[in-house]
Design a protein around this nucleic acid. Structure first.
Length: 475
RNA sequence: CGGGGCAUAGCACAGUUGGUAGUGCGCUUGGUUCGGGACCAAGAGGUCGUGAGUUCAACUCUCACUGCUCCGACCA
């Protein structure tokens, strides 16, 4: 376990380095020659694909349709909505030349596609009968970031962006909340990550949005990670882009809009929330390989034959299984698949075959058990459930243990230094929010839906408190 | 954008007072192994990040640049 070149930095020694080590050594990604643009290697991309498939189905179940829009936005189009430009302008990548010629209207590589969707919706929406429109696209976007980290913040990242138009404000508001519920369910049911759901403060909300909702995850170094957002836009964009429809009353009306997105940042959340000093630990339902079979003494033809039998049986049952019959030593393979976070390892050797059993090891708690050959097919799916549950509960316990009420400014600092969320009673004023940022470099992550007030005075100014806000240092 | 660290084989790193490069892992071939990162043998692999400067001579000294990385600021 202490082979010099293969080992990764320990979490307690340097958490950031541990993270980078895992990303590289689990072969999730590699760096490219352009800063902030990474290569998604097969194992990392497979993880994203599994998230995609799962979410895509959920979207379609609620009536969302997939589309694809251009990756470039004419500058003039991009500038139509004022807040939006102010928010994104500092981090756009702009193409100014096509072929040999300078472009008259330089093209912005999309940092997000609200403007393109609006331009298109303006053309195709004429009547209330055309509503609602609920489009989604899977694509990448580019934001010229100053500091980049694999999956957490990249100059280019993969995501989905949903953009909808509704006849009424009520429907649109409901949509933003419904999509947030779907994101939350993805965490709970697929990624084994508990999120805090809530609404953003005005300071933290999306450029141009009326309301921004988010799911926030807590990382083991005590920092929060915004993992997905949904926005209710009102009719601001729609008006700026001249989108209108003839309503049921035969009057011209403006539709109400939402957008919502999650990105490959979710991979960063998976890595950090579940990983340990031996590498990745993947939740079973999202793991690209759910079971790896390691034959022991595989030169023995009986062993390899039995290993293949297990492989075929599991594969036929729809389990993502890999048989590693390379001539590496078993010990090497154990370490390798631990690094890659494969949830279950199935060992087959001559001794097992003689006894009609195999050995199954769980990645998440290193436990090993002997399972009868005939029980394997029903035991493995059961173990997936158990592992998922254990991983979720462990993460949830961490979240609970690191969410603390702050009763004084001093206590707030202590909580933030320890890591995690500080619950703060807040008057609603921007100044008090800024003050906390200034003192402790912490931001309002969200105003959680579950409020549970514990005081009636604002922690900062002492005036009447309106909301409980979760503050944390964030990625 | 500010501060620190780093840049030599695919990876991790040595390289002395300046003299044109080495170790381990990995890779290839053959053989022995196999229940927690096996071993033997023979191989392949390098314009020393880029560009200037000093020098008879630069991986080594000087300067600039670029990239990566960490911390901070900024951030939807």
């Amino acid at each position: 376990m202490n082979n010099k070149n293969e080992s990764i930095t320990r979490q307690e020694d340097d958490f950031a380095q541990w993270y980078t080590d895992v990303c590289l050594k689990a072969e999730l990604m590699d760096y490219s020659s352009v800063k902030g643009f990474i290569i998604y290697r097969p194992y990392g991309y497979a993880l994203w694909e599994n998230i995609q498939h799962y979410m895509d189905k959920k979207f379609k179940d609620v009536g969302v349709e997939n589309v694809y829009l251009p990756m470039v936005i004419p500058t003039s189009l991009f500038q139509k909505e004022k807040d939006h430009v102010v928010g994104f302008a500092p981090e756009t990548l702009i193409a100014t030349q096509g072929g040999k010629n300078e472009l008259e209207d330089p093209l912005i590589i999309r940092p997000t596609s609200e403007t393109l969707f609006c331009e298109h919706y303006a053309k195709i929406i004429e009547s209330y009968r055309d509503l609602p429109k609920r489009y989604n696209q899977w694509c990448s976007v580019v934001r010229w970031e100053k500091t980049t980290r694999p999956f957490l913040r990249g100059s280019e990242f993969l995501w989905q962006e949903g953009h909808t138009m509704y006849e009424t404000e009520e429907e649109a508001r409901k949509d933003a909340l419904r999509m947030l519920e779907i994101y939350d369910a993805v965490g709970r049911d697929l990624l084994a990550i508990p999120f805090v759901k809530g609404i953003k403060t005005d300071k933290e909300k999306f450029a141009g949005a009326v309301e921004t909702y988010s799911i926030e995850a807590l990382m083991p170094d005590g920092k929060a990670l915004q993992s997905g957002t949904t926005h209710y836009f009102g009719d601001g964009f729609a008006k700026a882009f001249g989108i209108s429809f003839l309503g049921r009353n035969n009057k011209l009306e403006t539709p109400h809009q939402t957008s919502w997105g999650v990105s490959t940042r979710l991979l960063g959340a998976i890595i950090m929330v579940h990983g340990d000093d031996n590498g990745l630990v993947l939740p079973p339902y999202v793991a690209p390989t759910q079971v790896v079979i390691i034959p022991i003494q595989q030169k023995n033809p009986e062993v390899l034959k039995k290993a293949r039998e297990y492989y075929e049986k599991l594969k036929a049952a729809g389990i993502r299984v890999k048989l590693d019959d390379s001539d590496k030593s078993p010990g090497w393979k154990y370490s390798e698949y631990e690094m890659k976070g494969v949830p279950l390892r199935l060992e087959v050797g001559p001794r097992d075959i003689a006894n009609g059993v195999c050995v199954i090891a769980k990645r998440n708690d290193s436990s090993k058990m002997t399972v009868k050959e005939e029980d394997v097919l029903k035991e493995i799916p059961h173990l997936f459930e158990v592992i998922h549950d254990e991983m979720y509960k462990r993460a949830f316990r961490y979240l609970l243990d690191h969410t603390t009420e702050a009763h004084s400014i001093k206590e707030l600092g202590e909580i933030l230094d320890r890591g995690g969320y500080a619950k703060v009673m807040w008057c609603g004023e921007r100044e008090c929010e800024d003050k906390i940022k200034e003192l402790y470099q912490a931001t309002a992550r969200c105003i959680p839906f579950e409020q549970n007030p514990f005081d009636d005075k604002c922690l900062v100014c002492g005036k009447k408190a309106k909301k409980v806000v979760f503050f944390a240092r964030a990625y």
